[in-house]
Design a protein around this nucleic acid. Structure first.
Lengths: 221, 221
DNA sequence: CTGGACTATGAAAAATCAGTGAAAATTTTT
DNA sequence: AAAAATTTTCACTGATTTTTCATAGTCCAG
């Protein structure tokens, strides 16, 4: 897990970094809000530990900025224990608070809670990419070299099923049973026709759909 | 200020009511979550004090229900002080927590903090704009190229839900469950009709509402 | 290198689904 | 209590999608 530590005091950064790395996570550092925003633009982090009081750009403003373009969990490090700060924090999307002085153990516990929560939220994993083929499961979008392609429901379902079972040989019977449903009593060749259309839509990435003669198909990168 | 007190214990309700009224606010009572949801549907409150453990519909579920159609500050009255509950609470939009046993004075202090914050927020008003479509969540106003359009409550709720979940494929079932409520047992096609009317009202920006054949709809910019 | 088995493809028929309008039911306002 | 507004149901239609099927093409064992 990649953790971004944002604090202007070197000592605090070092202590946190040590603990973060001790638990087997990667630690990255920023000395102020401005730097943190910049780093978030170019890289993805799993959690941000953000101090409130910092020169140049304070923690609250930095979080506000970052949340504009990225949905990343934030734990605030606050010197003040005031109710107002807390409320304002939650409003702008802060996930948790730790009040200074804090025990590093406490901070780590919260990181883990936030991380676990995060994992629950994006169950499936929202976007997958194979070379120039991108599938956004949440939005049901498919892109070929960045261009959106329109798939019919069945085509999308087959692609979805293929990706879920990538690298696995799938018989026509299995495809019909799992994608069409147990109550489909039609022709086997129906699969072929849909594969044909899916391949046409995937353009050059049709190569991922491999024909297994005498068996069926498989999706392989 | 109108305060809704939700607790199944008469004694607790009475104590809280006394304090709320002593400070010059109006107090309203509900004995369980179900009743609270109902009351929120017909009336507006400035703050809700909500117990977690209640018969029929618990506090968390009630808050979830209420937040679907109204953005009202909620303070939870919790017997347990567990971290997990707290995190879950903040996730569904709880503003603050008071752990039992509480001093009424403490509760009143928090009501005032939450209320103050509310007033500040109203000034700003969160507004989102997609090209010429502007939605002012605080004021529940929608503008198309600057002209205000009158949406019916359902239309507004659907738009609100769409924007909260923009880019995400939403099935008719999910829409019915989340916008209409868990207790709606009507026809799927009802969604279509409301989408039709919402689209008509959004004029050219109907394009943001994308039909996903065989699935449902999604809001996409 | 050839025949049979299997797959790819195109076209047409069948089935499905969303958009729509109108009317009924319900809720809210007057 | 009546009127107005909103919500819901529902049937119909046109468009899209799915399925079938015939033909063409491909692969591989013998």
């Amino acid at each position: 897990m990649k953790v971004l530590i944002v604090d202007d005091e070197d000592m605090i950064r070092n202590v946190l970094k040590e603990y973060v790395e001790f638990e087997g996570n990667e630690a990255f550092e920023a000395a102020d809000g401005m730097q943190a925003v910049k780093m978030c633009k170019s890289d993805d982090y799993d959690v941000i530990l953000m101090d409130v009081m910092m020169p140049r750009l304070d923690g609250f403003s930095a979080v506000k900025e970052i949340k504009k373009f990225k949905d990343v969990p934030v734990i605030m490090l606050s010197a003040r224990g005031e109710e107002y700060d807390k409320l304002f924090g939650f409003e702008i999307g802060v996930d948790d608070y730790v009040t200074k002085p804090f025990s590093p153990k406490e901070v780590m516990a919260r990181i883990n809670v936030v991380a676990k929560r995060r994992n629950q939220r994006d169950e499936v994993g929202d976007v997958v990419t194979f070379e120039g083929l991108t599938v956004d499961f949440a939005g049901r979008n498919v892109y070929v070299d960045g261009d959106k392609v329109d798939l019919t429901p069945k085509e999308y379902e087959i692609l979805f099923y293929f990706i879920k079972n990538k690298g696995i040989a799938l018989t026509r019977e299995k495809l019909l049973y799992d994608v069409w449903g147990f109550d489909f009593y039609g022709d086997d060749r129906t699969v072929d026709t849909h594969i044909k259309m899916l391949r046409a839509n995937l353009k050059q990435y049709r190569k991922f759909i491999v024909t297994l003669r005498g068996v069926g198909y498989k999706f392989e990168v």
